[in-house]
Every structure is written in structure tokens, then in C-alpha cells.
Design a protein around this nucleic acid. Structure first.
Lengths: 163, 163
DNA sequence: TTCACTGCAAACGCTTTGCATATGG
DNA sequence: CCATATGCAAAGCGTTTGCAGTGAA
């Protein structure tokens, strides 16, 4: 499915969500959603703010926080905390479920999939009498290929998954 | 093993760690370790600060942050982020490995164990060429037993695992 | 004696809040 | 219309930093 269709689709989904929750369909909200779905990879509020300011959008951080909250609620965006006090976000529609491995040497984030995690969360929730909403699995690890000055191989090639 | 022996043991371990890393053995550092191992459950820097102030310790937040950093490094304490921008900590010596389920209705935290998580982290690290340091698995879930006014059963009994 | 560690307070950075204005329904 | 959303700026809050004084080695 081409990118333009995904953007159209999430716009629709967001529109329905807003209607069902008696929320206003403001141009800012759709602009933010569109901007988020213009890139893959992780972002934070500040990077999104700068990105939109560069494109001459008139948008405030407050509205970004507000809108992201809505997008989290309707599952179009997911939130991560990789050990730092900085919330990271990621578009989630039509992205296959994945978890993260964080390099302890350079903080770079890698993604991986493992279907077994589904069973674990189901077992735990059943045992405690809960229904799973979502989960967050982060593996913190050291790179095996450190050069003598402590630089890991992947830190040199900065074209990997953005943090 | 009685609690007093565990306190003695972690004090020893911390002492060795400090020596090996050319760090000074200050009374503050041991007082903080001792205080942390006086309770089970989660704590944050502020709660630990208040707790120690109440016991008339002369200690600063800066030293708490500094010392906790050392305790994390020597694995006597673990750190958690449960979706909020507030670091939570937990003593970890002789505590069996466990992960957390967070109630989305009341934020209470439950613990569970599942050996399968070990395999998952091993698989992921192998595939990406890393060596696991540690992991963090949080399951966010809704309580199945909500009363009509949205209060979950466990919120009434506040004697569960402290958050 | 020395310099790492300490307490204190100010600075920092991300997030939330208050308020006047703008606007979707 | 008017309740809600917005931009802006200030406040909030957990954490980090700077600095002068202290004490472990």
C-alpha cells in the first residue's frame, strides 16, 4: 500500500475517533497526524515541533502534547521510554508489532519481533485477572563489536534506526 | 536468610565494588544502601529522601542520585519507568527476577515471573550481535473487576505492591 | 594533604497549566 | 453563539550541575 493511502486511511480513522469521542476536528490535529505519518522511526515532541516549524506550520508544543495524547488513545501512535526522561513516539498503524533493543554503548535503538511475547503477556494478565492493553519490552545490551576506543560498529554508520 | 544478614551481605558487596572502582567508602553511601534494604517494594528519589530526612539523616538529593547510580552499576538496585517521567527503583539483591504489570485504571503495579522472557532476550541479542545487560518488560492492562463507579477491586485494598 | 564527595541551591529540560483569543459544531 | 481548542508563556517537577566546604585515603 503506497504511503499516500496510509495517510488517507489514518486520517479517516482519526476522524471517526474524534467524532465518537466528541472531539473537534481541528486542522492542527490533522496536520500533526499527517506530519507524524510523513516519516518512519522514532520522534519526540521537540523534534516534531522543530520539524513542523521548519515547514512554517503555526503550532504550539501544548497542542502537540494534547494531540499526541489523542493519537495514543486511538492507537495511531505508540509511546516509548528508553530509560531516559524523554518520551519517544512512533507511528503505529500498519507497523508490525515489535520491541526494542537499546545499545548501552551508544543509545542507538534496534527493533526485533518475537511472537512468544504475546503468550507471556497473555499468561501474566490471565493470572492476575487483567486484560492486556499493550506492553513494552526493552532489552538493554552491550555491543559485541567495540573498537579499541569504545566505538561500536553501528555508531559509525548513522543510517540505522533513528532514536 | 534473615533481613539483617542480607543487609550485611549487600554492604560487603558494595564495599568491594567501591574499592574495585576507586570510589570512596563514605558513610552516606552505606547509609543510603542500608535504608534502601530496610524495605521491599518500589521507591523513588523523593520518597527515599523524605524517609531519610524523617530519620534525621543529613543527606541531599544530589547524593541520593549519585549513590543510586553506583548501586545500579553494581546491580544492587534496579530502575524502572512505568510510563511516567518518574524513575522508580527497587532493591535487587536476592530478589528473584520478575517483570511488571501496571493497572491502567489505578496505576498499581503487580509483579509476575515468566522464564520464557530469558529466551526471548537471548534470541534477540544473538540476532543483533549484542550481549544482554538487562531488560524491562511492562504490561499495561485493564482490571477485569471494575465496580460501577470505575474503582477496581485492588484499589480498595491498598496493602498490595507499592508503586 | 589532597581531591573526591558532600549539601545546598540554582539551573536545566521535558511536560503541564493558565489565560486570552480563535473557531468548530 | 459558546464551549472547546489553540498559541504563548509561565509554572511545575524530576533531575543535573556548580560551587564552596568537608572528610576519606
Amino acid at each position: 500500500m503506497p504511503a499516500v493511502d496510509i495517510k488517507e486511511k489514518v486520517k479517516q480513522l482519526f476522524s471517526v475517533y474524534l467524532a465518537e469521542n466528541s472531539q473537534r476536528k481541528t486542522p492542527e490535529r490533522f496536520a500533526i497526524l499527517n506530519e507524524i505519518y510523513s516519516h518512519t522511526g522514532h520522534f519526540n515532541v521537540e523534534s516534531l515541533y522543530v520539524q513542523m516549524k521548519n515547514k512554517k506550520y503555526r503550532v504550539s508544543r501544548a497542542t502537540l502534547y494534547n494531540t499526541i495524547e489523542l493519537l495514543l488513545d486511538c492507537k495511531l501512535v505508540t509511546k516509548h521510554q528508553f530509560g531516559k526522561n524523554l518520551a519517544q513516539f512512533e507511528r503505529s498503524y500498519e507497523f508490525k508489532q515489535h520491541d526494542h533493543l537499546i545499545c548501552q554503548d551508544c543509545d542507538k535503538v534496534f527493533e526485533f519481533c518475537d511472537p512468544r511475547i504475546q503468550q507471556i503477556q497473555q499468561t501474566a494478565a490471565d493470572m492476575l485477572g487483567f486484560e492486556v492493553e499493550h506492553h513494552s519490552l526493552n532489552i538493554y545490551a552491550k555491543c559485541k563489536s567495540l573498537s579499541k576506543n569504545g566505538i561500536c560498529e553501528h555508531r559509525k554508520n548513522n543510517n540505522l534506526i533513528p532514536n
